[in-house]
């Protein structure tokens, strides 16, 4: 089967790769591109551990064909911190113990970041429904929701 050549932008860098037509974006990220921060929990779009953004839209990278990245801009968990400086959500998750095993954390953080970019002042209910596509089995979500709400408050304060 002939491979497709794909030119795209990942985490702000121009990237080219070859992919088989049926290969998922997640497999290319985790395989040839070595970006293993996106996790595979189900391969069917149900757990959200592979969440990335495609042109600022949240997608499950396991449900996206790698070939669809052509000409678009992708961001993964690896781009969330700037050098040594963690994103406020990452810092808050550490301070508030909003992770246990950590396997869902990259997806949850990507989703939460996307929420706060759209809605800097979400209610608890809005946070819960926005994150409903990200399964976490360790925390019961309590500390995750609290960390997102506190980060939102901090970021609003910082923006004033």
């Amino acid at each position: 089967m002939a491979k497709l050549h794909v030119s795209t932008t990942i985490n702000g860098e121009p990237v080219e790769f070859l992919t088989e037509p049926g290969e998922s974006m997640l497999d290319v990220l985790r395989g040839p591109l070595g970006l293993t921060g996106s996790k595979e929990g189900c391969g069917s779009g149900d757990c959200g551990a592979c969440t990335i953004t495609l042109d600022d839209r949240l997608v499950c990278s396991c449900l996206m064909l790698a070939a669809e990245a052509e000409g678009h801009e992708i961001r993964t968990i690896e781009s969330m911190a700037e050098g040594e400086t963690l994103h406020p959500l990452q810092q808050k998750f550490l301070e508030m113990a909003a992770l246990q095993c950590g396997i869902c954390t990259p997806g949850v953080l990507m989703a939460a970041k996307s929420l706060l970019e759209r809605n800097p002042d979400p209610t608890e209910t809005e946070v819960r429904f926005w994150l409903a596509g990200n399964l976490c089995r360790c925390t019961g979500y309590d500390k995750i929701v609290r960390a997102v709400l506190e980060t939102a408050a901090d970021m609003r304060e910082a923006a004033r």
């Binding site: 985790r30 293993t36 996106s38 969330m80 963690l86 998750f93 550490l94 113990a97 992770l99 990259p106």
Partner: peptide, 21 residues
């Protein structure tokens, strides 16, 4: 004390290596 976990930074940045990684 509610200290920062030693493995935390790797887990929020995607660097932590799980078995499939």
């Amino acid at each position: 004390q509610r200290t920062i976990r030693p493995d935390g930074a790797d887990k929020v940045t995607g660097r932590a290596a799980y078995s499939a990684d």
